[in-house]
Amino acid sequence: MNTPAVLSDQIDAANPTAIIRVENLCKSYYLDGANGKSVELRVLIDINFSITSGEFVAIMGHSGSGKSTLMNVLGCLDSPSSGHYWLGQQDVATLSNDALASVRNRQIGFVFQGFNLLRRMTALDNVAAPLLYAGISRKAARQRAMSLLEQTGLDSFAMHHPNQLSGGQQQRVAISRALVNQPQLILADEPTGNLDTQTSHEIMLLFDRLNRESGITIMIVTHEDDIAACASRLIRLKDGRIIEDAATRHRQNHAMAARQ
């Protein structure tokens, strides 16, 4: 795919293995205001950053700062109003709906705060579902799903339905599902938001391991400092703009603490 002239050479040069490049990204919603006029609500304003393959990035901000919207745009669940978003070498804005579905299926694993499991299916079938959409046979899909549930320690719960699982277990099923098509990128929108502290640490350990051992790029939205401390880089949003983008120093320590 051709790189448009707007994209400065610096970004390319600085990040030869950039998995995500965002330039002047804006997102607005239009709400019905008084007198039938629509009011523009600017949720994301001129967002620029680039993420290298293998990074572990935390996105922080108060509620309403636009962090979830940013995640949805990065996860191809929502489209930007203006600006550019390159995922790998693809300009996401040029992709058709079907191509976006394929990107969500193969290149991105999304983890939600509310787990978003299909509640009438077993844990195993939930994890296997993305593989079915990728055209893999049910038998092969279930085998692969089972091996992922083993990795996340849930193999004995494979035939349970989501409502028979605890929050932490459900989130691990959701993470297994996100990983099942071997994406290079995991996007997690407050994955520990509905979990207690102990379970949150277990989930964060899982992300830490995936990042270190499998080299998967992870972006995580959180408003908890200790969760953000797991990351190697912190992007802070306020009122739709980036106000801080820096490496963190405490990652190692936190991971060690969590293991104990």
Partner: peptide, 16 residues
């Protein structure tokens, strides 16, 4: 609708 949202998020396209 939520089910469809989830299915789309994990890679189902409209036709499927």
């Amino acid at each position: 609708t939520r089910e469809i949202g989830i299915r789309m998020a994990i890679g189902a396209n409209r036709r499927m």
